[in-house]
Nucleic acid binder design. Structure first.
Ligand code: FES
Ligand code: FES
Lengths: 140, 140
DNA sequence: AAAAACTTGACTATTTTAGTCGGGTATATA
DNA sequence: TATATACCCGACTAAAATAGTCAAGTTTTT
């Protein structure tokens, strides 16, 4: 039950942007240096964030990325969705005819896993990027 | 963010036991047939459940496994712990000196992931095996 | 004695993950 | 207009995790 590093780094990088952009574009190079995340990896991550309209890019010298929404409005769930990090704790699809074990009826645990997914997703839905910035003791 | 199949099958198999044991031991063969889970895989799973005192075994003919606690008392979290399925959504250890990115201070997202873990764990802590059996429409 | 059923460690194929590489394109500034 | 900076994007790979099998037992009831 782990979150993958792409999602983790995405949240981290966006939090970095929220702190350090002063209405300027933030370059991946700066994020990389501040957060200790590989620049090449960040590029891959931001590609997806851009495609999902979470950031927009500014090319050329002094370029970088800008948050499309304000941190107060950016839900963490949006970030995870952008990185395909579905919170689907088990493989069984709600609408699929096949259940988890190949039978036609849903197994006894099905509803339980559904509840779990809802429980986790609601956490991400209700958290905004700005929530991460409150009460931070450590320097970023 | 997926749960592994060992944990999933463990919950499923224990739910099966709760339904079908009438104070008798339930054999893995029966569980395997009813739930469509590989017998060999079940053996591996029950080894761990036994080591963690969630089931006890009865050997020989008419043998099988018996739940140590009643379904009302068996927390789902106990099952997951038995299968090493820690809900530790990211690798950074709370007490470790190293943070997730190798720096000495905790990163800005650290507390957030901690909160997430607590949120998920509380779900598993508060659910009992018996909760899965309520309101089941589908035959097991 | 035989059959049912648990015991255990080792082994392997597949999938996922994390991360890199190479070769682009756009733009600000000197 | 040259050049450095920084985004763009698909393909690739090594390592780890996962899912599941296999072999060779032991114990107990009938
Ligand atoms: S049928 Fe959906 S989880 Fe088993
Ligand atoms: S330091 Fe713990 S998650 Fe980053």
């Amino acid at each position: 039950m782990k979150l993958n590093t792409k999602s983790r780094y995405a949240v981290m990088a966006l939090a970095d942007m929220a702190v350090f952009s002063n209405d300027n574009a933030v370059s991946l190079r700066d994020i990389s240096l501040r957060q200790g995340i590989s620049l090449l990896y960040l590029e891959q991550i931001f590609l997806r964030l851009k495609k999902n309209n979470i950031v927009k890019s500014v090319r050329g010298i002094n370029g970088g990325y800008i948050l499309v929404k304000s941190p107060k409005e950016l839900k963490i769930s949006d970030i995870l969705i952008a990185l395909d990090q579905k919170v689907k704790t088990i493989g069984c699809k709600k609408d699929s005819k096949k259940s988890c074990n190949g039978k036609s009826t849903k197994c006894i645990t099905h509803n339980f896993w559904d509840e779990l997914d809802i429980h986790i997703n609601s956490f991400f839905e209700n958290k905004k990027l700005s929530d991460l910035l409150k009460n931070r003791e450590a320097r970023i």
